[in-house]
């Protein structure tokens, strides 16, 4: 995956493909930290809990395509559970996070998987991520167990660390590779032609060029 495609003339003309991605998982497993690492390459200790669902974006270049991740980082606390469906309903990708030091968080992750399989878009690409491998000394969820579960359910599986940055990019790269772009593009086209008409194209282009300038060079990985 190439994140430096911004200044590329070819890609500048290309319309980025919007991929809606949702992060799910128990509270305090590190969802927001993963996003923060991915988007800003930063890490904060003792991050305050997320409220509602935070919205972040990140552009990446994969092969010849520019992908724009629209990331909905949902709150893990139970009272925000009711928000989640709104965000995973139209999502093309989901990252379900658990904490390798807390077996209960894996159980919660499994319930999320089930919920997505039942209620989300059937083409959704799901990645199961065991976070906090920097705390591998306190590991209580074996790699093999989680991997076996992921394979069984057709999920991408990673163990990562938002603190050290290990495997974070890989998660998103692999997700990006798996996404069925043709379908998305087809959907978008039909949507655009049906609802928005011609005027939109010009505007979108303009916006995009501006956006490109402003967002400049954030993603250097």
């Amino acid at each position: 995956m190439n994140f430096s495609g911004r200044n590329d003339a070819a890609s500048a003309n290309m319309k980025p493909i919007q991929v809606k991605l949702v992060l799910l998982g128990e509270s305090a497993v590190g969802k927001s930290s993963i996003v923060l690492r991915f988007v800003n390459n930063e890490y904060q200790d003792n991050k305050e809990p997320t409220i509602g669902a935070a919205f972040l974006t990140q552009r990446c270049k994969l092969d010849d395509r520019i992908i724009k991740f629209e990331i909905w980082d949902t709150a893990g606390q139970e009272r925000f559970h009711s928000l989640a469906p709104m965000y995973y309903r139209n999502a093309q990708a989901a990252v379900i996070v658990y904490d390798i030091t807390k077996p209960a968080s894996l159980e919660k992750a499994k319930t999320w998987v089930k919920e997505l399989q039942r209620q989300a878009n059937p083409n959704i690409v799901i990645a199961l991520v065991g976070n906090k491998i920097d705390l591998a000394n306190n590991r209580s969820v074996p790699y093999e167990e989680a991997e076996a579960y992921a394979n069984e359910n057709g999920l991408l599986f990673f163990e990562a660390s938002a603190k050290t940055g290990t495997n974070i990019i890989e998660v998103f790269t692999e997700l990006a590779k798996k996404i069925p772009y043709e379908q998305i593009l087809a959907n978008n086209k039909t949507l655009n032609s049906r609802t928005n008409g011609q005027g939109d194209n010009g505007r979108v282009n303009l916006n995009e060029s501006e956006n490109n300038n402003q967002d400049g060079g954030q993603c250097n990985c």
Binding site: F55, M86, N211, Q214
Partner: peptide
């Protein structure tokens, strides 16, 4: 910040909510 594509997504999301 004139991020109009985000504006569009957010509009949709607000509409959803």
């Amino acid at each position: 910040r004139r991020k109009f594509d985000n504006v569009k997504t957010l509009e949709e999301s607000i509409q959803d909510v």
